[in-house]
């Protein structure tokens, strides 16, 4: 059985702060990490490998050369092989173009019986790339997977909904996108780190995966960023003073004055 896990290196947006005076992003010292949902996707694949050691787990990403660090982490967690799609022409890709490149990478890697991806990446929060890769490969997809179980020729999964979940049976090969409720990603093991150092990371450019530059990156992106801006900071509110009773009394009278209560 072969499993491919699509992963992404992202800046840790939890660490990002806004400069309260300038209203700009403070990005100094923000670390790059494996996207959290992708950690759950990888863990799901590794658990299948734990139960059946004949399973091969490959990780695949599109990104700049530095993304190799994250792939090395994935190898240290237990993945067998790693592929990095890296090329200047992949730059500026929206989800549509990204899915084309990832799908080409998956084909080049020989396809898979099962593909996992994280539900969404914390730097974009679109949740679009997973289902779009599945569409490009012509396989079925289940998003928001919080529990999964493999059977012969199919997977039985729980798909999270806002107020519960659905139990879905899906034919394999298929692509499943993982939410954090699916599992707890393991840490890298010492042995894993040692093994990871000896493993090669395969790097592919557009030629290697048989894509024309017009099918990649900005050129192949229907959506474009028209402009970006930091949301205007809100005016400073009022800090209430006095003891607890006084503060509560002021608050209630302020709200009553303005007819909020």
């Amino acid at each position: 059985m072969k499993i491919i896990v699509c992963v992404k290196q992202v800046p840790d947006t939890n660490e990002v702060r806004i400069d309260p005076v300038k209203g700009t992003l403070i990005r100094d010292g923000v670390p790059s990490i494996l996207n959290p949902d992708d950690g759950n996707a990888l863990e799901a694949a590794l658990q299948i490998k734990d139960a059946d050691p004949d399973t091969e787990v490959a990780v695949l990403t599109m990104g700049p050369p530095q993304a190799a660090h994250m792939l090395r982490e994935c190898l240290a967690m237990g993945a067998d092989t790693a592929y990095l799609l890296s090329d200047r022409v992949f730059g500026g890709a929206d989800t549509c173009a990204t899915s084309t490149t990832l799908a080409a990478g998956i084909r080049k890697a020989g396809g898979a019986d099962l593909i996992f991806a994280g539900r969404q990446a914390i730097d974009g929060d679109t949740a679009q790339v997973g289902p779009q890769v599945a569409q490009r490969l012509g396989i079925s997809v289940v998003t928001y997977v919080q529990k999964s179980h493999l059977e012969k020729g199919k997977a039985v999964v729980q798909r999270q909904l806002e107020d519960g979940y659905e139990v879905i049976e899906v034919e394999t090969p298929c692509l499943l996108t993982a939410v954090k409720e699916l599992n707890s990603p393991r840490y890298m093991s010492v042995g894993g780190i040692v093994d990871a150092c000896g493993k090669e990371i395969t790097v592919w450019d557009h030629n290697a995966v048989g894509l024309d530059p017009s099918d990649c990156g900005l050129n192949a992106s229907p959506t474009q960023v028209f402009r970006s801006f930091t949301p205007p900071p809100k005016g400073k509110g009022e800090m209430l003073g006095g003891n607890v009773q006084e503060m509560c009394s002021t608050l209630v009278s302020r709200l009553r004055e303005k007819h909020y209560i």
Binding site: C96, Q135, T143
Partner: peptide, 22 residues
Amino acid sequence: THIGRDLGPCLAVKAGTGLTAD
């Protein structure tokens, strides 16, 4: 919603167009 965010990306690929999330 969990449904719209599943359907939207698939439709966009089928229709060969872009989709802006959320």
